[in-house]
């Protein structure tokens, strides 16, 4: 039976199905990090992507990767820190993140081109709510994102 996660962003809730067959190591890693709770961040370089930062020590394996991300993808990858913080930190030029894509015209980019990202899950319920809530937060301020395992 597929493993599912509950994703909440502000006032809305969605369901993620883990890609345990395509991305077993990434799925295992993500489950080990749960529950996650953090102020959500909106991408400023990739389009319609919302993300949270993971522990800097998190090691993301190369698995089930693509540069052709699509709506509903849940991703694990290293985001260049220049897209995260105002000042490029000399000791850390990339940060592990968990993100999801809620609209088309989105592609995950580095400073020199596309970044291959692990597709660790798919949003299977509540996507339309996220498609309303994320733009609302861009206008009114970013709220909290929670991610937990559905037992």
């Amino acid at each position: 039976m597929a493993q599912k996660l509950k994703l909440t962003l502000g006032n809305v809730e969605a369901t993620i199905e883990l890609r345990t067959e395509d991305a077993p190591e990434s799925s295992k890693l993500l489950k080990s990090l749960l529950p996650l709770q953090q102020r959500a961040r909106h991408s400023m370089e990739n389009g319609r992507e919302v993300y949270i930062l993971l522990d800097p020590k998190t090691e993301v394996p190369d698995e089930n990767q693509t540069i052709y991300q699509t709506v509903g993808d849940v991703l694990l990858y290293y985001k260049p820190s220049v897209f995260v913080e105002p000042d490029w930190t000399g000791y850390a030029n990339q940060m592990p993140v968990l993100s999801w894509v809620y609209e088309r015209d989105t592609a995950i980019m580095g400073t020199y081109g596309p970044i291959a990202t692990n597709v660790v899950g798919t949003i299977i319920g509540g996507l339309e709510k996220l498609q309303t809530e994320a733009p609302r937060m861009r206008r009114e301020g970013m709220g909290t994102m929670n991610l937990s395992l559905i037992e």
Binding site: M44, E45, N46, G47, V82, F83, P86, W88, D105, T106, A107, M109, T111, G113, P114
Partner: peptide, 13 residues
Amino acid sequence: YGEPAGEGLSAYD
């Protein structure tokens, strides 16, 4: 207002 300016998806779209 800051770096990176004009990078990201818009530069490759």
